[in-house]
Design a protein around this nucleic acid. Sequence first.
DNA 1: TCCATAAATCGAAATATCTCGATATATGTA
DNA 2: TACATATATCGAGATATTTCGATTTATGGA
Lengths: 102, 102
Amino acid sequence: MDIEKSISALNNPVRRRILEWLKDRSNFPPALPSHEDLEGVCVAYIQEKAKLSQSTVSNYMGLLKQAGFVVAERHGQWTFYRRNEENIQAFIAAVKDELSKP
Amino acid sequence: MDIEKSISALNNPVRRRILEWLKDRSNFPPALPSHEDLEGVCVAYIQEKAKLSQSTVSNYMGLLKQAGFVVAERHGQWTFYRRNEENIQAFIAAVKDELSKP
DNA sequence: TCCATAAATCGAAATATCTCGATATATGTA
DNA sequence: TACATATATCGAGATATTTCGATTTATGGA
């Protein structure tokens, strides 16, 4: 739980929106039939919604991953990203703890 | 509650530490007798702990103030900064809300 | 093997943040 | 009024972030 890295990762509106989109798989186009049983969303789908270049989105996902907010799973040529709910809650708790008074 | 501005303000370890220090007045030197009944800490005391230049600390306090994390109160030549607990809790709630799943 | 596709990495330009010292402003005091 | 003190603001250099297109790497299929 590196709060520095986590806050940095969140310090960007598109990265925060990506995290929100990933709450619900139906924010993205349907998965290919061969991917239907996999959790997560591929970079191309995220890129399409973010309307940023492939390299930028790949970089963003790397930052979110390093911060622990998402998990990446490779399947063939695709990388599927999904939220890490445990780490997200841990971050919220850490922020609360650091900011709250006693 | 501008979450963008708030996260930006927190995206710096010294600013986060200042917010922590301000939880407890005894983290700073005792107030002057004429200031004993005032809440908050003057910039010079914060600067001393932060070990950064006066202009940097003044700038930091301005950012924390714009984000709503602190309140500034002028008394004579001094500006006393103190935490805005309500806004801090509102920020925590907003982060929780934005990051948490359903 | 050769090509197509998905994603990651590289290098660079534009922009933003950090941090300082110098200066300006406001106030209090002699 | 003149000066001292506290803070804010300005301007600038150093560093970091954003974002891109080009390239590289990994995989899958013909």
